[in-house]
Simulated assay, not measured.
Amino acid sequence: MRISTVAATIAALMATPAAWAEIQINGFASIVAGSSLDDDESLFGYDSEIDFNQNTKFAVQVAADLGGGLRATAQLLSRGRDDYDVEFEWAYLSYDITDNLMLMAGRQRFNLYKYSDYIDVGFAYHWIMPPQGVYSLPFSSGEGIGLVYSTLWGDTDVGVTYKYITSSKEDFVPSGTDITPAPFSAKGHILNLNFTTGDFEYGLNLGYVSDLTYEYPDLLALAAAVESTGLFPEQTVNDILPIDDSATIIGVHGKYDPGNWFILAEYTRLDLDPSAFALQDSAFVSGGIRFGAVTLHATYGWDENKPQYEALDAMLPVYNALPPAAQPQVAPLIGLTQMALETQQQDSYYYTLGMRWDFHSSAAFKVEYTDFTNDKGPATDGQVLLMGVDLVF
Rank of each mutant, 00 (worst) to 15 (best):
188 G>R: 06
99 D>W: 00
368 E>T: 08
383 Q>V: 03
264 L>K: 07
293 A>T: 04
92 Y>V: 05
186 A>Y: 11
26 N>G: 14
388 G>R: 14
315 M>H: 12
328 P>D: 03
182 A>C: 00
17 P>Q: 13
36 S>A: 12
263 I>P: 01
162 Y>C: 09
321 A>T: 02
216 Y>V: 02
89 E>G: 13
86 V>P: 02
49 E>F: 12
385 L>I: 13
285 V>N: 00
175 S>C: 09
68 G>L: 12
23 I>F: 13
312 L>W: 09
28 F>G: 01
185 S>Y: 07
314 A>K: 14
78 S>C: 04
187 K>M: 14
356 R>T: 15
252 V>E: 01
372 F>Q: 01
367 V>D: 03
276 A>Y: 13
55 N>V: 00
264 L>P: 00
140 S>I: 12
25 I>N: 14
166 T>E: 11
41 E>Q: 07
50 I>F: 09
391 L>S: 04
49 E>Q: 15
166 T>Q: 11
144 G>I: 02
154 G>N: 04
156 T>A: 06
392 V>P: 04
243 I>C: 01
195 F>Y: 09
8 A>N: 15
28 F>Q: 01
312 L>V: 14
111 N>S: 04
149 Y>D: 05
187 K>Y: 04
127 W>F: 13
363 A>M: 11
226 V>M: 05
156 T>R: 08
89 E>A: 15
371 D>K: 09
135 Y>Q: 12
